[in-house]
Write a protein that binds this DNA or RNA. Structure first.
Lengths: 243, 243
DNA sequence: GCTCTAACTTGGTAAAACAACCTGTCGGGT
DNA sequence: ACCCGACAGGTTGTTTTACCAAGTTAGAGC
């Protein structure tokens, strides 16, 4: 039997048109062939053509205007720039992917900001796992993860060793929770003396602080990751389409 | 004549189902009525039902599984957090939407960072429009927009008055350029003495700086917006789905 | 208890029709 | 000659009917 399940026709059409746009066959700003032309050329029905063009429009490759036609926008610059957001890498990638040492792994009373993000009462406890990340032998970032106590039970988070598995996979397989989205807060403050010393930074330069609250689809907070970066050595970069 | 253009049927169905999910009529985890049930209840055809359910799935309201049915996930926590990103509001909304005064509007030599984002030679000139934004009578942010000289010609950017139109619409109608996406950089630094005075902030608290480079679909830089926020009074918040 | 089938589900394709919108052209009028 | 409206022909947007394919489940029959 043919195990090579062919992709649906509309998906093939999407790929064919993407190739033509990328190759310059359909340059940006030009008018795409009309629906009828595509029907004749590819030998498919109109719903199939429309389904393919809908995908392209939703992905940002083309614009459509009723009565005029569909215009090529070019390869969506976003598609390539899908690099992980600041804190996200530390949630999905295994700890062994980044050089660093675990400097704290225990249940502690949570700071106010973390309590708010986790929907916990102030001064209640949560499990904290904090690592000092190094690049080229120099300490560069402090990454902390707070997890509610009931979620940390039965996991390997207490280990002082680097986890060979990403936090996301670990919690998903052990506790059956599903990460859905992240609410991110970015702020800046001056470093405490101990922090400046840990990071080897001058104590008169600010610290960029990124807080990422991980939630499931219903909005329940599952974990909070905090990334502290010396602002003189790091920036946050990101790209997104305009509505 | 009836000016109240009715929304398409599939859009009405989307709204109806969203209301039922939000009201708890279709609780998260439950099975949505099958396509045939919805066809009978709403008196529409199957493609219409499928179109509505496709929108709901793409927006994250439901999950679908072939052979079993469609499961309610709940209101996507993202939908509400679709507020504009930090710098974006100043590009689309008219200046009159935010209280503030124009404190600079002239062609100036661009700083290095701006030159890099605009793909200009260092020390070349660009048009700068800078405003001091106030909330509740207190100055809170400095918003600067750099536009290449050739794009600023023939526009109202030189006016000291607040523009009644958004920068996006203005440049789009006057110069025919299309905003496509934004590359955003976030960093922190200490304020200059003049900046601290302008913003009425203590000079030992850091300044959050957001740089948004607006580009068209081909990646050509069209403008750069810089937002300066005192870190003790403002934070950046954002939400995004996990890949 | 086991298997197999029937009946359900969603996914995909085809053919047809109408509506809304844009852009020319061809008039008639000034 | 010029301007302006009507109109025809193109485009995309929406809706309907119909059929087949693939995955899941439950019950009939062994």
């Amino acid at each position: 039997m043919s195990l090579e399940s062919v992709p649906p026709k509309y998906a093939q059409l999407v790929q064919a048109l993407q190739r033509r746009i990328e190759s310059g066959d359909y340059p940006p700003g030009s008018l795409l062939p009309s629906e009828n032309q595509l029907i004749n050329e590819f030998g498919v029905s109109r719903p199939t053509v429309v389904a393919a063009l809908r995908v392209l429009r939703e992905q940002g490759w083309i614009d459509s205007q009723q009565g005029k036609g569909r215009f090529v926008r070019g390869r969506p610059a976003m598609a390539s720039a899908e690099q992980p957001r600041p804190g996200q890498a530390y949630l999905t990638a295994p700890e062994t992917a980044s050089a660093g040492e675990v400097i704290e792994a225990a249940a502690v009373a949570v700071p106010n900001r973390i309590a708010a993000l986790l929907n916990l009462a102030p001064k209640s406890k949560a499990f904290l796992r904090r690592r000092l990340i190094s690049r080229d032998g120099e300490p560069t970032e402090v990454v902390s993860v707070w997890v509610p106590l009931e979620l940390s039970e039965g996991t390997d988070l207490t280990s002082a060793e680097s986890l060979p598995q990403g936090l996301r996979e670990h919690l998903q397989s052990r506790k059956g929770v599903r990460f859905d989205h992240i609410v991110e807060q970015i702020t800046a403050r001056m470093p405490a003396t101990a922090e400046a010393k840990q990071l080897g930074m001058p104590k008169n330069t600010p610290l960029l602080a990124v807080y990422g609250a991980v939630r499931d689809a219903s909005g329940t907070a599952l974990a909070v990751v905090e990334v502290l970066l010396p602002a003189d050595r790091h920036e946050l970069e990101d790209a997104y389409p305009i509505g």
